[in-house]
Design a binder for these strands. Structure first.
Lengths: 333, 333
DNA sequence: ATGAAAGCGCTAACAT
DNA sequence: ATGTTAGCGCTTTCAT
């Protein structure tokens, strides 16, 4: 014999009121006489009634859940954002459907569609390149979408992030001012605008301001992994680079370790600055100097932004730029 | 003018069939004449119809979403499990509602309740201690729950993990056989059964088998963070420990770095073995020797296990123990 | 302040 | 192979 799920109808009958009244007390509608409210609440407690969020979602056309597309939960840059997202989401009574995309266009679009099918009230997208197809899908839906921790190079979608160009310009200037002329630019795929467009531009800006000629041979494109960084050393070494600015912390710790393994003294013989200031930066010896970004806040603000869109509040700016900084640790002199 | 959402009724009318038939083709029911199916599919495509999963959930009492309770997404041990969970979930057409609990009993129970309100088909719990209250709630619901990566010391709930006792026993034996007599046991809260019961037991077993007396002063209880490990060195040093077995990788990298910062040569003067073999183990120098566990698989198997429970298939064992191992890297001689 | 009743968009018997 | 028809459990006008 199946355990009978108890519904709003059951409590209405038991409390001798209508379903509408029960609904009102459950939803905190003030138009209920205190005595009635009390009685209903007692019955709810007695019957151990739990509102069915699915039924509510169907009737109200709001699910109080938002979709979150992430390249890989295991990546601490993105998981840090995700943490900020979830915290603000629960603050506003939302839940999160988390889906890994592996930065794969197909998966991203497919995930987007199942998220929409599930009637999420909004979506946060994390990932470093927005494909045209994805963009089209987003533009066709009325479900709000915001991008967290990356940038839409077409500037069509709402997003929250730091100014990657300015941050790189500042970090590279730092390196230059300490006497380095040959500075390697190390990042993930240049096809991702965050690398090939914004960060690289910042790098070039710093060189230009200091009258250093840009050298394509100092640009290293690889994977976002510490292993990729480790095996990069021979190439880095033969380029005669004196320092490196690296676009990802795991990659950077790999670069650092690759150099150390080759007997290089960091920072005396080679300096490195990384980009995300995740906990990883504190795990190496020497510790990694880094551009700082408010990772948790980027997620938090993105989620807050999304709540505004879901409530159809006025949005002043499509893009919110959060402040970045720089922290000197042991990998710079 | 609001954009009209198109429903199953619209495609039924347009295709000149009944809603039931449309439902059948959408759900892949074979009882549809090929010609009819084709026609319906065309209309679906033409109208750009997307089934409403919420309505489907209400009617079918299945949401194809499972809840995942995680202490902190930012923790790579748990996020690695989460990745396995999500991959298997999508394989079976499920989505994941991810909720951070901070290992806080209140939040865990609250999250459990909202998950149940959202009518998830199943739940995966990650966390190192199952409170009585949580356990009671779980036992009252018919929604299946499985624990991933930790152990229910009351052995009432289904779970997937390695044999923590045997793994610690093996790792500590390793340390003993290499000549260490005074071995520190470093872990998170001993109130968590995984530490205070299972791992500690393994540690004691290894000592006993080698006729070494257990010394309470060699047991160090702290937080799961690299910083906690770093500042542990003075205490570790004055205990005259010659080696340490550490229950968490971030904590272990902290212990390693604390020792190095104090001028200690690892592994010559001090050896360390960690427990989870996450990517963190490859980021230090020397790299961390570690107990190995199939993290991704633990998540994957837990999710697979859950699908069986959701389908009400027969389950032979409540507990599935996955194999562990040991990998020697640079922090052991 | 409360109730009646019509959906929300779909599935699942049941009938044909 | 296809159609009819109840619901699923709730919210939301609209009355009163």
């Amino acid at each position: 014999m199946e355990k009978q799920t108890i519904t709003i109808y059951d409590v209405a009958r038991e409390a001798a009121v209508s379903m509408a009244t029960v609904s009102r007390v459950v939803n905190g509608n003030p138009n209920v006489k205190p005595a009635t409210r009390k009685k209903v609440l007692e019955v709810i407690d007695k019957l151990d009634y739990r509102p069915n969020a699915v039924a509510r979602g169907l009737a109200s056309k709001k699910t109080t859940t938002v979709g979150v597309i992430i390249p890989d939960v295991t990546n601490i840059y993105f998981s840090s954002l995700a943490r900020g997202i979830d915290d603000v989401a629960s603050m506003y009574k939302y839940n999160i459907i988390l889906a890994n995309s592996d930065s794969n266009e197909q998966k991203e679009v497919q995930v987007l569609n199942t998220l929409l099918a599930k009637q999420v009230d909004g979506i946060i997208y994390m990932g470093n390149s927005i494909s045209d197809y994805f963009r089209e899908q987003v533009k066709r839906t009325k479900t709000p979408v915001v991008i967290a921790g990356s940038i839409d190079d077409k500037e069509e979608l709402e997003s929250v992030h730091i100014d990657f160009t300015a941050a790189f310009e500042e970090a590279v200037s730092e390196l230059i001012h300490r006497g380095n002329k040959k500075i390697a630019f190390v990042s993930g795929p240049l096809s991702q605008p965050i690398n090939g467009k914004y960060r690289l531009q910042g790098y070039k800006n710093a060189l230009a301001k200091n009258n250093i000629e840009f050298d394509q041979d100092l640009v290293f494109e690889t994977d976002y992994s510490s292993h990729a960084g480790e095996i990069l050393w021979p190439a880095l070494s033969s380029s005669n680079a004196q320092a490196a600015i690296v676009g990802d912390d795991e990659l950077a710790i790999g670069v650092l370790n690759g150099a150390k393994d080759a007997g290089v003294n960091v920072p005396d013989e080679f300096e490195v600055i990384t980009s995300n200031n995740t906990r990883i930066t504190e795990m190496s010896r020497p510790k990694l100097s880094s551009i700082t970004q408010p990772l948790y806040d980027i997620g938090a603000v993105a989620m807050r932004f999304l709540t505004k869109m879901m409530n159809e509040e006025e949005i002043d700016e499509k893009t919110v730029n959060l402040p970045f900084g720089y922290i000197k640790r042991g990998t710079t002199k």
